[in-house]
Design a protein around this nucleic acid. Structure first.
Length: 573
DNA sequence: GCCGTTTTCGGCCCGACTGTTTTCAGTCG
């Protein structure tokens, strides 16, 4: 029985739902949820750890009891305690938890009083209007459940951060236009720069007595007002994106921003640290007794807990608080550190710009170099270059470099990795280039070991330099192909190759965790835009976001180097 | 069920909004 971490986490999560409906000790429920969250984000396979005889109860959120339960799950594929719970309460009740406004208490009441066991029972009760007569329920609650029911299963998926930016921009301008508004900041996963966002958390500072939430609720793009109070409002926009607005006085700006930026688990640990110091942390400040001792800025808040400022991209409770307390936080790479772009398409293949136009755009960005990486012949749909056209492009770039000032155009290609791991053009012509970027563009469905070996064989070719978009995923559109990333990274290290962190907001591949693994292994990455039109060059910042989330420092990134150093690093010995 | 910079027992993050109440429970983030 091979169980992966997500499957174990799903079982704990489902069991937590059941326990909640059974009205078990809420802290016990939380223990299962915490463990589920931890397990699903834990990089090592629990099953393999058990196999290797490692102790799981050393891990956070996992004690002796849960360690034993994980063992049972891995060995048998299920959990006997959960099965006996399922025998007591209809498991379809768990589905009702996904209805907005229905929690365990109300579900239990519906089951006990009206015999409702599943979605169909609930629909019938709504038609008969019997729910409104239950104690604690009323007409409005009944209506809310009915509304919630129509939305089940239609939950919008998380939105790419680039799209969320476009939606946020006019909303921020609208909020700033109110004369009572002092300061507007987007917090949440948007500020932590996650690759996708589930909703927008917006913080506004204003004097007491303001009417900002009312003003916000009149924004033209709102589809539905979910809740509306004096200091907080929640709405859904027509795009499906939910927006939470919080209004606090300026004296609480830092504490509110810290709280709203999260992540949830980072914030929870912060509050625990406060408690351990006899302090209280909430969105209004850090308090000793009733006295606020910090809150104006986030720096104040962290300092009040004797911690250095932690960059939002690191706030995932994956070691940043420990690193902060030991003064070992990374100096994160920033957009200013970037000296060139190592993946750009011209109009020779499927790009839209001339060599000259790309070169001058890169120079305007202050870059020292930019490479041209058109597709190779196998990718006919993109008008990929054959040997002769590539040789012609090489000459054209040489000629262009002679007259260019302040920027060097590097000769490169995005060459296809073929079925057998060979490269799509002869070595003789690849050797004429400054370096190569190599990519998988077909046969995505190979098993993990076959795909990994295909790429490792390609790396054996001394002309191979950088592996483009290592997973080939398209966010919300195409699943990553199956590879053993750590094996590929170790293979790249052995051979003097590198991996790309593709900065296109639909790719972000390597993702944050991939970047972090590279850093742990000591492998440098190239942050590249994969530009096809001029404005794509600005995607660099999305790549930087994920690199920062992956704890990368300037020295971990290839294209923070001078051209001279870069050439040295790309040389394969 | 987890966990320990007062603790191996007794805590467990904390506050806003809504609806059904008339002081609060439930839900959510």
């Amino acid at each position: 029985m091979s169980m992966n971490n997500n499957e174990i986490a799903d079982i704990f999560s489902h069991y937590a739902d059941l326990l909640e409906i059974e009205e078990a000790n809420p802290f016990r429920v939380r223990a299962y949820r915490n463990a589920a969250r931890f397990i699903s984000s834990f990089p090592k396979s629990m099953a393999e750890m058990l196999h290797a005889g490692e102790d799981l109860d050393e891990l956070p959120t996992i004690g002796k009891d849960l360690a034993a339960k994980i063992k049972t799950i891995v060995e048998t594929g299920s959990l006997p305690q959960m099965e006996s719970s399922e025998a007591k309460i209809p498991s379809a009740l768990v589905e009702l938890l996904s209805i907005e406004g229905l929690g365990p208490k109300r579900i239990r009441a519906l089951h006990r009083e009206l015999g409702i066991s599943n979605l169909d029972d609930l629909k019938r009760a709504l038609r008969r209007k019997t729910i409104r007569h239950l104690k604690g329920f009323g007409e409005k609650t009944e209506h809310r459940i009915s509304e919630g029911l129509t939305k089940v299963g239609t939950g919008v998926q998380r939105m790419s951060i680039a799209r969320a930016e476009n939606i946020a921009k006019p909303l921020i301008a609208y909020l700033e236009a109110n004369t009572a508004t002092q300061r507007v900041t987007i917090a949440g996963s948007y500020r932590r720069r996650r690759e996708t966002v589930g909703d927008l958390d917006i913080l506004v500072t204003a004097e007491a007595g303001n009417t900002i939430t009312d003003y916000f609720s009149a924004y033209e793009d709102i589809e539905e007002i979910i809740s509306l109070g004096q200091t907080r409002a929640r709405v859904r926009l027509r795009s499906g994106l939910a927006v939470d607005l919080r209004v606090v006085p300026a004296a609480s700006y830092g504490a509110a921003l810290q709280y709203l930026t999260g992540s949830r688990s980072h914030s929870i640990v912060m509050r625990k640290i406060a408690i351990a110091r006899d302090l209280k942390l909430n969105e209004y400040g850090v308090f000793r007794g009733k006295t606020r001792i910090a809150g104006h800025t986030e720096e104040d808040v962290y300092a009040a807990l004797s911690l250095p400022y932690i960059e939002p991209e690191l706030r995932e409770n994956t070691g940043e608080l420990e690193a902060a307390s030991q003064d070992k936080l990374p100096q994160l790479v920033s957009l200013n550190d970037i000296r060139g772009d190592l993946h750009c398409h011209s109009n020779a293949s499927d790009g839209h710009e001339s060599l000259e136009a790309l070169a001058s755009a890169a120079r305007e960005k202050g870059y020292e170099y930019l490479s041209i990486n058109d597709h190779s012949q196998h990718l006919t749909i993109a008008h990929g270059l054959d040997k002769n056209r590539l040789l012609k492009q090489i000459k054209a770039i040489d000629k262009l470099n002679e007259k260019l000032d302040g920027i060097t155009v590097l000769k490169s290609i995005e060459v296809d990795i073929l079925d057998d791991g060979s490269l799509d053009l002869p070595d003789a012509v690849l050797k004429e280039l400054d370096f190569t970027v190599c990519a998988i563009h077909y046969k995505f469905n190979l098993p993990e070991d076959k795909q990994t070996e295909r790429i490792l064989r390609a790396m054996d070719n001394p002309c191979f330099n950088i592996l483009a978009h290592p997973h080939g995923r398209l966010i919300n559109r195409r699943q990553p192909y199956r590879i053993n990333l750590e094996r590929l990274m170790r293979g790249a290290l052995d051979r003097g190759c590198y991996l790309e962190a593709n900065a296109h907001p639909d790719r972000l591949d390597l993702d944050d965790e991939g970047c972090r693994l590279a850093r742990r292994l000591g492998l440098k990455v190239a942050i590249s835009t994969d530009s096809h039109v001029m404005t794509d060059l600005d995607y660099m910042r999305f790549g930087i976001d994920q690199a920062r989330r992956g704890w990368l420092e300037k020295q971990d990134v290839l294209n923070t180097r001078s051209l001279k150093e870069l050439r040295q690093l790309l040389k394969r010995s």
